[in-house]
């Protein structure tokens, strides 16, 4: 006797668009590869270190299997999360399978630039974009811009502005302003009324006590000249 019952489905196929990081290798020399990849990973944000990576070769025709295996081993040894090999006429799914990788066609994909900069979640602006804030920045609040930062409202004591580029405050700056936080020495700070706790450009800073008296509560333009901060009237 057979008992018929309907089995509950335990799987479901879904189509989903995914962003993948593609590692384009221009040379397979294991030593060079090891040095350069580990250096890039050291600078990279955590998401890039954990991201699934597809290996693509700039010149697939010249790649031999031994060289490819060595390169893949090197990358795995560095903790790169390899998931697949880009498929083309020279590298088929069999080669990928031999390397323990999946095979993916990159045709039809679209390139998105990936930088190695850290990108914490609280950074609302994309690299190079200007972030504009029109609400007061209150004590305890922190604003980070990956490009320039423009604030149209007061910045309170205890608030912190950070920008990889310039900082403009079209109101009173009472908090801290740090421009060029990733080392851009050409970054500048502009503000309508300087009453800051601290100003900094590319790591060179002045605290409130050391601000030039004649610029206090005035409109100023702050630049970096070597290791010295220059204050000028904004007229």
């Amino acid at each position: 006797m057979t008992v018929a019952f309907e089995e509950k489905a335990v799987l479901e196929f879904k189509g989903r668009m995914l962003m993948m990081t593609v590692l384009l290798l221009k040379d397979l020399d294991p030593n060079t590869l090891h040095r350069q990849v580990s250096q890039r990973l050291d600078e990279a944000a955590q998401w890039l270190r954990d991201a699934p990576v597809v290996v693509d070769l700039a010149d697939p025709g010249s790649a031999d299997q031994v060289g490819l295996m060595a390169a893949v081993d090197t990358l795995r040894g560095l903790g790169v999360n390899l998931v697949a090999l880009a498929r083309n006429e020279h590298l088929d799914s069999d080669t990928a399978a031999m390397l323990g990788l999946g095979s993916i066609s990159l045709a039809g994909g679209r390139d998105v630039p990936r930088s190695a900069e850290p990108a914490p979640a609280e950074q609302p602006a994309e690299p190079g974009h200007t972030l504009v804030i029109d609400q007061p920045v209150r004590s305890g609040q922190q604003i980070y811009s990956r490009g320039d930062l423009i604030v149209l409202a007061p910045v309170s004591t205890g608030a912190e502005l950070l920008a990889e580029g310039h900082i403009h405050v079209y109101n009173t700056l009472r908090g801290r302003a740090l421009a060029g936080v990733r080392g851009d020495q050409s970054a500048r700070i502009f503000c309508q009324k300087l009453d800051a706790e601290l100003v900094s450009i590319a790591g060179i800073y002045r605290v409130a006590e050391d601000l030039p008296e004649q610029h206090r509560k005035q409109a100023v333009h702050i630049t970096l000249d070597g290791d010295a901060m220059r204050f000028a009237d904004l007229k």
Partner: peptide, 12 residues
């Protein structure tokens, strides 16, 4: 005043 400023930030 500073504490009020902090509270305003939290309220937002």
């Amino acid at each position: 005043v500073r504490d009020s400023d902090r509270i305003l930030g939290i309220l937002s």
